[in-house]
Amino acid sequence: NDLRKLYPYGALATSLSNVVRIHSSSGTLGKPVLTFYTRQDLNKWYNLLARNLWAIGVRSGDIFQNTVSHGLFTGMGYLFGAELIGCTTIPYGPAGPEKQLKAMVELGVTVFHAVPSFALKLSDLAEEWDLKPGKDLKLRLAIIGAEFWSEHSRKRIENALGVEAYNNYGLAEVCGPGVAVETPEHKGLMHVWADHFYIEVIDPSTGENVAEGEEGELVITTLQREAMPLIRYRTGDIVKLLGYDCGLRPGHPLISWIKGRIDDMVKVKGVGLYPEVVEKIIMKYNELKPDYLIVLAKYDEVKILLEAKDKVRRERIEEVISEIRKKIKEETFIRVNIELVGKNELSKIRGQGKVKRILDLRNL
């Protein structure tokens, strides 16, 4: 909120004449947050993104496709990181999954960058087209982030596309992607680049640091930014600090995947509910499209909207719905209703922007 109050140029620590690039957050909470780069900031950011890609195994000669928008948002930066490594880059930008997947097949793409919801659409489409990894698809690596996702989503993406998928983390306020990345040596964790970012994990209520291994809010201090340095910036993201790398990257902190945002958790009849709990159950069922929306109505009614795949027997879908309802009750002690929706209805209901998993209508 402090940065939003400073919109547009109040957060600048240098003259505007030294700024060579402006990017923006999505603005889903109101005014967007602008982030500024000097020439040196840009070069360092591209190097961080090249580090991320190198760390997951990307090398010169790979064909890299960037599936995200090349507008104001920071995901476009991976294009320049891939070029630094020596990849052939394809700046496809915001096209639909059909066009993007067709390009991957025809151009022999080996690496791609995407948000999780789009990667799941690609995997679902690859199964629908009956594409064979290694034959129709030459993909081997994917770097995915900017939205919440889980190990269960990863399995669906990897199985359908024949890739090893790696998580990464960043936010527009501190540079964009490039803060942390998962690596083959520490699957399930992410390395924070300690020469650029000093991190803390705090209790969001008290502001005090929590012990290693405890869940809390990630706080970031930038160490090398010129245009927009930040001190103890509260990200709102929930993580655990899980020690420090003593192998290939000694001294770099290791954090968990992002569990969600502080404002992602909702209380239903006094019980905390994160989308993560629902996702890990739903993603196990290949009879369903890899998408869902949790709708909270008055009197704490919880409804989960799902889309079934074509050609699945009605009896089997009814079995799946019954199983999901039972498993969610066992995990959360919350009784839910499940409703099937038509093709693309979920996208229409939630609207544009980053994929939201919870629609809270209780105060409307």
Rank of each mutant, 00 (worst) to 15 (best):
E287C: 00
E287K: 00
L288W: 01
L288I: 02
K289A: 05
K289E: 05
K289Q: 08
K289D: 01
K289Y: 05
P290V: 02
D291I: 04
D291M: 06
Y292D: 05
Y292F: 15
L293F: 02
L293P: 00
L293D: 04
I294A: 04
I294K: 01
I294E: 04
I294Y: 07
L296H: 11
L296R: 08
L296G: 10
L296S: 11
A297E: 15
K298N: 14
K298F: 12
K298Q: 13
Y299N: 15
Y299D: 15
D300K: 13
D300C: 11
E301H: 12
E301T: 14
V302F: 04
V302I: 09
K303A: 06
K303S: 12
K303C: 13
I304S: 03
L305D: 05
L305G: 03
L305A: 04
L305Y: 11
L306Q: 03
L306S: 05
L306E: 01
L306F: 00
E307Y: 01
E307G: 01
A308V: 01
A308N: 01
K309W: 00
K309L: 01
K309I: 00
D310A: 07
D310T: 02
D310M: 04
V312S: 08
R313Y: 03
R313M: 08
R313S: 06
R314S: 10
R314P: 02
R314D: 12
E315K: 10
R316G: 05
R316Y: 01
I317R: 11
I317F: 08
I317W: 03
I317E: 01
I317T: 07
E318S: 09
E318F: 03
E318Q: 06
E319K: 04
E319H: 07
E319R: 08
V320Y: 14
V320T: 12
V320K: 15
I321F: 10
I321K: 13
I321T: 09
I321R: 09
I321S: 02
S322W: 04
S322V: 10
E323Y: 05
E323W: 07
I324C: 01
R325T: 11
K326E: 09
K326W: 04
K326R: 13
K326P: 00
K327M: 07
K327L: 08
K327R: 11
I328F: 02
I328D: 00
I328K: 00
K329S: 10
K329P: 06
E331I: 07
E331C: 12
E331Y: 14
E331T: 02
E331M: 12
T332L: 10
T332S: 10
T332Y: 05
F333W: 10
F333T: 12
I334C: 07
I334Q: 05
R335K: 15
R335Y: 14
R335A: 13
R335H: 15
V336K: 08
N337L: 12
N337H: 15
I338H: 10
E339Y: 04
L340I: 09
V341W: 06
G342T: 08
K343F: 01
N344Y: 02
S347I: 12
S347F: 13
K348N: 09
K348M: 08
K348Q: 12
I349Y: 05
R350L: 10
G351W: 14
Q352W: 09
Q352K: 14
Q352P: 09
Q352M: 13
G353T: 11
G353A: 10
G353F: 06
K354W: 07
K354L: 06
K354S: 10
